[in-house]
């Protein structure tokens, strides 16, 4: 159940980020257009740009939406409203999840649609993107967890640098895995339809498990945190 105060706080956050999230989505959609152009160069370029958006937006979102309110001394004001510390944190998590979730879903589904339209691309692309986008979720959740636990911009920055490096590494390792390389060579979408190599099941599963663990950690923090460190 969401209380009125929570609803209004989430509403305010979404209004606040409406512009930035729209810019992200709009530029993401624009970059998707690159996949329509012939040649591998544009696939790589489009991917890099979309990955940059996804990896660049959540740190901005979390620092501005979560830690900035501590820094700006908004917390005393917010806590004077009919809300508990846990409810407030929950609203913050929801705001971030809705905003980042919107980016995630819209961009991923557009990318997949584009792949279908341009059937000349490798048959692995759609599932490859699903697995790659899957990496952003634990990175986002980890940064959110640190931001809420530490209540400091500094620690949040440290955690997203860490998660960004990790994601970038994995994004680079992924296409070089022998199983993935092999699947890439198995023809285009027009001929093959979507390919889902068994290694993706393992990767997706680990992404889900890590995400669920982080979500549980967030849940525990929300349930147990009784007061802020920084007022």
């Amino acid at each position: 159940m969401i209380s009125m105060t929570q609803k209004l706080i989430i509403q305010k956050d979404i209004q606040l980020f409406a512009k930035s999230v729209s810019i992200c989505i709009a530029s993401g959609l624009l970059f998707c257009g690159l996949f329509m152009l012939p040649g591998q160069f544009f696939i790589v370029l489009g991917s890099i740009l979309i990955i940059t958006i996804m990896l660049g937006y959540y740190p901005y979102l979390i620092t501005t939406c979560v830690t900035r309110e501590h820094k700006d001394k908004n917390t005393v004001f917010v806590m004077s409203l009919p809300i508990t510390t846990g409810q407030y944190l929950f609203s913050k998590i929801l705001s971030c999840a809705i905003l980042y979730g919107a980016c995630w879903i819209i961009l991923l589904s557009t990318v997949i649609c584009v792949f279908y339209l341009g059937g000349h691309l490798p048959a692995l692309m759609p599932s490859y993107y699903v697995v790659m986008f899957g990496l952003f979720i634990p990175a986002f959740l980890l940064t959110l967890l640190v931001a809420i636990l530490a209540e400091s911009e500094g620690w949040t920055i440290v955690s997203f640098i860490f998660s960004n490096i990790l994601v970038t590494l994995l994004v680079n390792v992924l296409p070089n895995l022998p199983a993935v390389q092999q699947a890439f060579g198995m023809g285009n979408l027009n001929d093959q339809g979507i390919l889902w190599p068994s290694i993706f099941t393992y990767i997706a599963l680990s992404e889900i498990i890590i995400s669920v663990m982080l979500a549980c950690a967030l849940f525990i923090v929300v349930k147990t945190k009784r007061q802020f460190i920084n007022f």
Binding site: L16, D72, F77, S80, P82
Partner: peptide, 30 residues
Amino acid sequence: DIVSIKQDVAYVAEDMRMFGNKTIQWHMQF
């Protein structure tokens, strides 16, 4: 019962900040 307490108890402190990019009107509506 802090939520229902805060429905009837108001608080003002010198170092308290409202939402900077919102107007006074917005806060009143809120």
